[in-house]
Design a protein around this nucleic acid. Sequence first.
DNA 1: AATTTTAATGCAACTAAGTTGCAAATATAT
DNA 2: ATATATTTGCAACTTAGTTGCATTAAAATT
Lengths: 125, 125
Amino acid sequence: MGILRKTQSLAVMLAEFDKSSHAISAIDLIRRLSNKLNKTTVYRILDKLEDDGLLHSFLGKNGIKWYAKCNGCSKTAHTDVHPHFQCVDCGQVDCLAIQIPIPELPNRTALMSSVLIQGKCQNCL
Amino acid sequence: MGILRKTQSLAVMLAEFDKSSHAISAIDLIRRLSNKLNKTTVYRILDKLEDDGLLHSFLGKNGIKWYAKCNGCSKTAHTDVHPHFQCVDCGQVDCLAIQIPIPELPNRTALMSSVLIQGKCQNCL
DNA sequence: AATTTTAATGCAACTAAGTTGCAAATATAT
DNA sequence: ATATATTTGCAACTTAGTTGCATTAAAATT
C-alpha cells in the first residue's frame, strides 16, 4: 500500500539507508535497529518503501533478502533492474551499474531476471 | 563426503530424478517421498549427490532450493553452469542450455554467477 | 555365513527468516 | 481538542532447513 504517514520508524529506516551506499539485508537491518524498532515494523516499512519505488529487493547468498536504494523508479514503474554482487569473503553486497542482456528464449517469455554474481570485492582482493 | 553406500533411499531419490527432466525443489521432493523417506534423509542425500556432481542446486523464487541433474560434472569439477527458468504461473523450473556471459568487473573478481529468469513457460503461454 | 565395523536413517527438537492477528500507540484530518 | 485511521509492538506462528543421537542397514572382515 506504500507509505502514508511520516513516522519516527520511517525516518530511522531511511537514515540507515542514507548512511551507506551498499545494500542492506533485512536481517542485518533488524539487528542494527533492534534497540529502536521491532522486526515486524522493519519488514513492513521495507515492503512499503519497495512498493513506493524507493527501494528494490533481491535475494543474496542462501536466499536471504537484501534491499538497496532504487535509481529512478516510481510507484508504478520499477525500471531500475541490474545485477548484484556479493563478496564471498566479507559478505558485502552492491548493485552493479551494468546490464546483462537476456537472450530470446524459444518457447518461453521472459518477464524478469535476477543475476547474482559472487566473488571478491576490492577490499578483499 | 559424497555417496558411499547404495541404499534403498538413494535408489528412491535417483528414481525420482529420472522420472522427469525438470528441476525439483527440495520441499516438493520431501512431499512426494514423505511416505518413504524422512525429510532429513532427503536433504542429506541431496547434499551428497551434489558433492558427487550428479546434481546441482540453485535458488528459485522466494529463495527456495531446487535441484537438477548435472551434465558432465564430476566430484572435483562442477562445470555445468547455466541459467534457470521458472514459470511465474505453474512454478515449473528448468535448466536453460545457454550461456549468459558475465562481463569483467572493475575492482572485483567474479567467481560464480547465478541467473534466474522468470516468465511464462510453453504450457502457460 | 556370522560377526564386526561404519555409514545411513528416523525422529524429535531446534534454528533462522519471515508472517499474522490483535491491542495499544501515534499521525493526520476534522 | 477530538475523532479517525494508520502504524507499531508483541507474541505466537509458519516454513525451510539443520543437528544430535539412538537405531538400522550396508559393506568389510573373519
